[in-house]
Design a protein around this nucleic acid. Structure first.
Lengths: 215, 215
DNA sequence: GACACCTTGTGCATCAGTTCACAAGAGTCT
DNA sequence: AGACTCTTGTGAACTGATGCACAAGGTGTC
């Protein structure tokens, strides 16, 4: 019943999962969800669901559960999913193209409105509806199109420079796919999606069981 | 100095970063790294570096630092990076193609040896050196090519089925890009890379500062 | 050899997040 | 109304991770 205090980071990371889980419930219909059901849908346990939702000041009704529509509203509110945050994709290699093309982002309020690439052959072209500009135009693009989020899918060497350019342009939210540690001012939120690291973590566990088997 | 006890998960997730940081040091040359330098390279703080490395039973020398070559060896050993873990990519949409194409994976010991897709036009073709098979052949592929890791880049509806097929084929490590919660036996390690969720977390913070500014 | 200077390894306090367990409320049935 | 069942909300214990601070143990210099 906390009236919107600070929401723990771990909870924030799970709210999207709950929201997605609620899609299993038809929209216009009054239905109730128990923390147990929601836990199943989100792949976590029920106690966590309840504690997470309590941070939103949510009121379910005891003995019954949560009203699915109202819960959806509350989580949406907390996450601010009603907002539209335009995205610029920096680096139109294979991955960048795949991301720019990913229609799912637009549906969720993250339209890819522009891209940059240093390849002269790509600059000036339009890939899947996304215009490709020179890296130097980043600042201009960000201002003109109200870009809120920058995606870095450049080669690792160019990643820090791109991050700097994004920050200089006023972008405070970055999702990076580059296998590099990026530095930026504290107020800039960086989420690093490091696929090689992920694979190496999987590799570590495979390695572990292999050792266990051999001994 | 713990002689290879259990390594905390948080440490495992950072070891690849240290390893990457060590690339700044030339291979054949004897050089020393201090925890401070390594901390900078990996974007964490020095105390964490030292505690992490202590879990490997590492011995740096006090007053000097760590021998870069030996440290690299030790981390490599712990992570098992010498192993090669063949990967199958399930779902050759935009993202799947980008992943299959990503030469960086092969360099790190994760060669993409095969792919699957349900599109009849793609089955039987070879994309960037990766042969595309029908989903039904997954079991066969896994056995024939000794696949260790499955990447799920299918549409969300097909994700759980694909995961089940991978598990049935004996794959115990899965990296999923599908925006869905996957269920699998406990012994299967699943790492979910959920891009929409990542964006929504960024969106949450943007939303927060916007609220703060408006008030 | 003594002293000054580094940097590691680690005990300890702290913090964030998870899980348990249960009282408190809401509905239902008799 | 009372008893029973259900599910929330939360205090409290617990787990894991983080960061501090300092002793222990090296190197180098005089």
């Amino acid at each position: 019943m906390a009236p919107l205090g600070r929401i723990p980071e771990a909870t924030v990371a799970r709210l999207p999962l709950y929201l997605r889980g609620l899609d299993a419930f038809p929209v216009g219909v009054t239905a109730t969800v128990s923390s147990d059901e929601l836990a199943d849908l989100a792949g976590v346990n029920a106690a966590k669901v309840r504690k997470d939702l309590s941070h939103l000041g949510t009121y379910g009704t005891r003995g019954v559960g949560y009203d699915s529509a109202f819960l959806r509203f509350q989580i949406s509110q907390a996450l601010g999913v009603a907002n539209v945050w335009p995205v610029v994709v920096c680096g139109m290699g294979n991955l960048g193209r795949a991301l720019a093309n990913h229609i799912g982002f637009t549906d969720c309020g993250f339209p890819v409105v522009a891209a940059t690439d240093s390849d002269l052959d790509k600059i000036g072209t339009v890939v899947d509806g996304v215009p490709v500009h020179a890296p130097g135009e980043l600042g201009d693009i960000v201002h003109r199109l109200n870009v809120a989020i920058g995606v870095i899918s450049t080669p690792p060497e160019a990643a820090q420079g791109t991050a700097d350019a994004l920050v200089a342009a006023g972008v405070t939210s970055i999702m990076s796919f580059a296998p590099t540690v990026l530095s930026a001012p504290d107020e800039v939120e960086i989420r690093s999606v490091d696929l090689v690291t992920e694979l190496q973590i999987l590799g570590f566990h495979l390695h572990r069981v292999r050792i266990a088997e051999d001994s």
